[in-house]
């Protein structure tokens, strides 16, 4: 086979993207755990670790640009590099969202959403990312549509959770609370709503990864929107 060094670099790009995704998923799991347990030390590790993830992201982006500039990839190789270039951005954003989650845990004294509900939607979103990356790693398209379709259920679960919090907020009579209590309450509500929205966004990034993987494997832009 010709162009062995080039093929080696393409293989390495795939491995590196998957390794970065594994790292981000570990951080995401840690963030969920930190939120659930209130473990501030763990939360701090996630937040401080985001710097490494950003570094990896910039490295991989640079590798993609270099492959484009030096190797003039075409056809399947071109779609693989273009897709990887987009996918590393999604992975990096999931890393950012993980730091958000860890931060909410540190701040959140009184969770408004049952912790098992957070865990449910959190794990659903995380599994979507994990599965999307597994498909990307195979270089094939099988599973992309199915994983993307799970996002509808996640969106619905997030929507329901947000509505429940708002309903409880409306149901509470503010006249029974002091000004300080109201302020704390409002801060808790917005943090929890942001938590739900961030988890929902993790699912969206999983869909993006599926969309780019489908394009990569079959030149099909059916999931890109």
């Amino acid at each position: 086979m010709a162009r062995q060094e080039y093929r080696r670099r393409l293989d390495k790009l795939r491995t590196d993207v998957c390794a970065m995704a594994d790292l981000v998923l570990d951080r995401y799991d840690d963030a969920l755990e930190a939120y659930e347990t209130g473990n501030e030390e763990l939360a701090q590790t996630v937040i401080e670790g985001d710097h490494d993830i950003n570094e990896q992201y910039l490295d991989l982006e640079g590798n993609c640009v270099e492959l484009l500039a030096l190797q003039q990839p075409v056809a399947g190789d071109l779609r693989f590099i273009a897709s990887s270039f987009k996918i590393v951005t999604d992975i990096e954003r999931i890393g950012d969202l993980a730091t958000n989650l860890a931060g909410y845990g540190v701040e959140d004294a009184e969770p408004l959403l049952p912790l098992e509900d957070v865990r449910d939607i959190g794990e659903t979103a995380g599994t979507m990312v994990e599965d999307a990356i597994a498909v990307y790693e195979t270089g094939k398209a099988e599973g992309t549509w199915e994983i993307a379709a799970r996002d509808d259920d996640l969106d619905e679960a997030c929507q329901n959770a947000s509505e429940r919090i708002v309903r409880e907020l409306i149901a509470n009579d503010p006249s029974t609370l002091t000004d300080t209590e109201i302020e704390v309450r409002l801060a808790d509500v917005s943090r929890t709503l942001l938590l739900i929205r961030d988890i929902e966004r993790v699912g969206d990034h999983a869909v993006n990864i599926c969309a780019r993987t489908l394009y990569m494997a079959e030149n099909d832009d059916g999931l890109i929107y």
């Binding site: 086979m1 010709a2 162009r3 080039y6 093929r7 990839p73 075409v74 056809a75 399947g76 190789d77």
Partner: peptide
Amino acid sequence: VEDYITGKFG
């Protein structure tokens, strides 16, 4: 064609 233009053979 894919193999040829991506340099997998030729």
